[in-house]
Amino acid sequence: MSADAALIAVHDITKIYAMEGAPVHALRGVTIDIHRGEFVAVVGPSGSGKSTFMHILGCLDRPTGGRYLLDGRDVSHLPDDDLSAIRNRQIGFVFQGFNLLARTSAVENVELPLLYAHDSRISPGERRRRAMTALAAVGLENRAEHHPNQLSGGQQQRVAIARALLNDPAILLADEPTGNLDSRTSVEVMDIFQRLKKERGITIVLITHEPQVAEYGSRIVRFKDGRVVSDHPNSSRRTAAEELAAVALGAAEDQA
């Protein structure tokens, strides 16, 4: 794989849902390349196809037509089990609703992907160690035994991020990750994303309908009616770390 080859190469993909006779065209031919280390914000109104696009990128769904090369491998028509393995190893998901398992400690939630790492045998001790490392990366090592209902929304989302990062995925897919968070914690989550991109070179695809959240991305892709209507680097990029520092200066408030 040459260095400049796209990590994600989507060519003219379509997605048609057969709904009560009348087919719904969710994607009408999307072509896009995403390279390693990019932080792509996908914006668009609801029904624009951005969620469907993310599901296909995340190998939760297969395109009806077109081609999707993930790291050079055509994954458009792989069987379900192979897609599961790809999700497990190469993709991390962060959802709007956090999707943590209730009545399960933070560290056990983070461990989850390792339980499905089929090709590598990981001992429970190793599993716990890696989960703790991932929790430490999002600053929650001292909340490991807390259950989701004992954590704030921001903390829950950070647990979800730690879970997404556990298998060192190449891609982090975030579907409205700040949708359930207040603006302050939203900035904190964006800070984590920006640091992940900078420090680990993780490719991030962020789906949002909030323009100001999209501003944290390095590239903004706009969807409408199942098509890409605009795709350009972000000229007015916001930096979460700076904003947090400013807030901290203004009012010496406690984080976390």
């Binding site: 995340g58 939760l60 379900d80 089990d81 599961s84 393995a85 999700r87 497990n88 190893r89 998901f93 609703g97 999707n99 943590l100 398992l101 989850l112 992907p113 339980l115 499905y116 790492a117 089929h118 879970r163 298998n167």
Partner: peptide
């Protein structure tokens, strides 16, 4: 159901 969805998203196969 959501738990099943989460498990599938992090790589659980149908048979898992």
């Amino acid at each position: 159901t959501r738990e099943i969805g989460v498990r599938r998203a992090v790589g659980a196969r149908a048979r898992d």
